[in-house]
């Protein structure tokens, strides 16, 4: 692409209905290449549903998703993954019965020869600080470590865009700090969208924040501005209704 101003990812009137419930309501969203964006919002605001449409796990009821100027709404998850979107889901989605190395190797193998995949797996294990546990089945690891394995798998696929759904959930303070560091490392070369509840964590990493509320975007601004905003505070504390 020659036009650097074109967004890496954008959605237009993206909508998802579950029966009569509007989970995501006509969302217009845009992400620049190399950007790091945080999505916040109370439970049920539609963040995870929005993510699942981006990754192809849900087929949107209506609307458009454009990634690198290609329409991807309704494509199968593996097709979207091949275009260069990697996702860490909310509940760790890993191969529990296989060891840590095998998990990362499988992620790297998609685009690489077996031996290159082995080299990539070694590098990634170093980056997620799990080299010493490479032969342990992932099911035996702690929740935080399994999150890292999943982030490692996303990185091993070398995607253009990384989606992380609650990467710091259930982590200790030390693990959270290391995760923030890892995210900044990734952002050096990749665009990210991160769904997160932990405001402390968002302060550590965030640049621009998008607030979801009742399936729509409530506001979108710099982290400081958003976190000071009275409406955002009300939404989190459940004071008033903003449609």
């Amino acid at each position: 692409m020659t036009d650097t101003a074109a967004p890496l990812l954008s959605t237009r009137s993206l909508t998802m209905l579950f029966g009569g419930v509007v989970a995501v309501d006509a969302v217009d969203f845009s992400l620049a290449p190399g950007e790091l964006r945080c999505l916040i919002g109370p439970n049920g605001a539609g963040k995870s549903t929005f993510f699942k449409m981006l990754s192809g796990q849900y087929v949107p009821t209506a609307g458009e998703i454009t990634f690198r100027s290609r329409s991807i709404a309704g494509s199968a998850p593996h097709e979207i993954a091949r275009l260069g979107i990697g996702i860490k889901t909310q509940v760790p989605n890993v191969f529990n019965g296989l060891d840590v190395h095998e998990n990362i190797w499988l992620a790297a193998r998609r685009r690489n020869s077996p031996s290159t995949a082995r080299r990539i797996a070694r590098d990634i294990l170093e980056r997620i600080r799990l080299s010493h546990r490479s032969m342990v089945p992932v099911g035996h690891l702690s929740h935080g470590q399994r999150q890292w394995v999943e982030i490692g798998m996303v990185l091993a696929g070398d995607p253009e865009l990384v989606l992380l759904d609650e990467p710091a959930a259930g982590m200790t303070d030390e693990e959270t700090r290391l995760t923030a560091e890892l995210i900044r490392e990734i952002n050096a070369s990749r665009a990210l969208i991160i769904v997160e509840h932990d405001i402390q964590f968002i302060r550590m990493i965030a640049d621009k924040v998008t607030v979801f509320h009742q399936g729509g975007i409530l506001m979108e601004d710099k982290a400081d501005t958003v976190l000071k905003d009275q409406r955002v505070r009300d939404v989190y504390l459940g004071k008033k209704e903003y449609a």
Binding site: Q57, P77, L98, R109, R110, M153
Partner: peptide
Amino acid sequence: RIAVAVKENEVRASLLGYDP
């Protein structure tokens, strides 16, 4: 190895770009 991965977790395999 990919077939075993699909057996372990079909969703993850497809999110990695494999067609289960």
